[in-house]
Design a protein around this nucleic acid. Sequence first.
DNA 1: CATTTTTACTGCAACGTTTCAGTTTTCAAG
DNA 2: CTTGAAAACTGAAACGTTGCAGTAAAAATG
Lengths: 349, 349
Amino acid sequence: MDDNTITKTRQSPASGNLRPTLKTIAYMTGLGITTVSRALKDAPDIGAETKERVRLVASQLGYQPNRAGVRLRTGKTNVIALVLSIDEELMGFTSQMMFGISEVLAGTQYHLVLTPHMHQKDPMAPVRYILDTGSADGMIISRTAPDDPRVALMTERNFPFATHGRTDMDIVHPFHDFDNETFAFQAVEKLASLGRRRITLLAPPAKLSYYLHTRIGFERALATFGATEVAMGRITSEAPLDEVRSQMQMLMQSADPPDGIISISGSASIALVAGLEAAGRRLGTDVDMVSKQSAEFLNWVRPEIYTVNESVRQAGRELAKAVIARIDGVAPDLLQSISEPVWSTMAPR
Amino acid sequence: MDDNTITKTRQSPASGNLRPTLKTIAYMTGLGITTVSRALKDAPDIGAETKERVRLVASQLGYQPNRAGVRLRTGKTNVIALVLSIDEELMGFTSQMMFGISEVLAGTQYHLVLTPHMHQKDPMAPVRYILDTGSADGMIISRTAPDDPRVALMTERNFPFATHGRTDMDIVHPFHDFDNETFAFQAVEKLASLGRRRITLLAPPAKLSYYLHTRIGFERALATFGATEVAMGRITSEAPLDEVRSQMQMLMQSADPPDGIISISGSASIALVAGLEAAGRRLGTDVDMVSKQSAEFLNWVRPEIYTVNESVRQAGRELAKAVIARIDGVAPDLLQSISEPVWSTMAPR
DNA sequence: CATTTTTACTGCAACGTTTCAGTTTTCAAG
DNA sequence: CTTGAAAACTGAAACGTTGCAGTAAAAATG
């Protein structure tokens, strides 16, 4: 019927301004599709001259492999999933981490897919989804718990991942963490050096790993510097800011108020200051405060808050590098890193 | 050679715990792959009983269409791309927007892919990439300019998108914007009501659309309330915070300092306060301040800053709904929305 | 010069989906 | 009882890629 007698693969690809495919290059070079594919991968059984020619044509056409084709054929998605709790700390924490990840992925073939979820709901759901649908080659998770079922599941399924924060499990896995133990220790040390001995700590939610590290550093420092803890009460660093404020106010108005405050969260610190001012106390006079922050804005708040910066952006970079390395088969124990606290130099007054 | 005589499509799918495909369902129901495909799409030429059976088996197996298969065949990516400048405002702005978008996408088949770029570099690059590689079905862009080449390009290529911020072009396109004109007007009004008449404005970068709206509202209000502008100088709301601080300090120490300050950015406001305090002035006494913010933290800063909340999360929701509607063919003029300023009630002291 | 080996290239099939162009069966109409 | 049409289902082909199992020509070996 059809008077076209040339073989299928040598047919001229559809005209128009469609994306070039291997077929296009094959047609233009007079080679087979397979040859082109292998030439672009620098396979050993393709002639040097041919490779050169193929590469030239490919770059002229601006050829880029069709992701769906590759994915369907090989199962490789070229996607890294970032699983986030939708209630993640607001003050730029999440976006900084994203940008850090993006910086690294920009130099690779990987795209970044965001998979947020409510953290009241089952935090396993997005992980299961990604595993079951194979929709990513690797995953980055945050809000790691000491015994984290997500880590167990991904390890069991041999799925590459990296966690923001350590676990307390027997599983060796890639992570990046901030040294909250040292932060807490140094925070107490700082307050002690200012003559403060009655210290309260606004700690993370107890179920998260970094709660433990924070507490350990805090308690070790209390012992070291002969300070005592003034209990913060039921509030964590993730409580609504008005609860943080009123709790702080109550604490300062109690019979036995602290003279030193440590905050693990920059945004909560704002509310803590509001609370102590509401109780008629002043920073630098009645009480001093040390806070961790992931943006720089506390540096501009007066009276002075002593701050330590956690570079979440750097964390993002490390995590991205770790997952990619893991995908490439690097052993998990080589992909663990901890960043040390960096004290801010005060902004000029 | 092969003694297997049943037809190809009726072969038992590979064993093991692989994902079910149409083939799996076809095998289990004894139907053809085509029938299963059409049954799941509720096509008119499939019997009601058959559809029921297919749906049952599919849900039993937890069948989910393979995205790569669909994408390769139909060209539909089921991806929405969020194009961000890597220097986007830090204070939670970006993550809030993402979460808003995610909320909407969670109820759909769409995944969210993040495509950040340096904004010093060609902001067209990521847009071109997405258009050329067809890596998304729709796009959301921010930092819209009055004459934005990205909008022109996407419109020309008939690619669905929504912008955060309006343009000043002849092109009708989906957008969501905050009413910065009304904000600026009301900010002056508020300051005027406090007896302030010498007002300075920390405005957005001049190349962005919302600079214009802000200026228009500001100038209209100056005329209405008989106030005058004290020029802020070369600083914009995106300047490094220490430059914002020192510029504010200079301004307050000049011969002719303002008694009212309007800030378009929450994070810059912190630095503005630091600057005016460095100059020995106090908020509420020498000067009053109105600021827009996209997180709630300014509510906790003392002395009091009058604040307007821009819900970036809501913006994200609107934008996501708009792109999806656009993909579904809804006319662009029906997909434009503007949100009005909401003044914060002061947090209790 | 006949044989083997190496080099360079190649079709075909498959990944999972949807579209096209049927085919078979059932049923109503004449 | 034939014809036609409607209803229900179907295989083949294609999207772009890669792995497999080749083949043909050139070079090395005896």
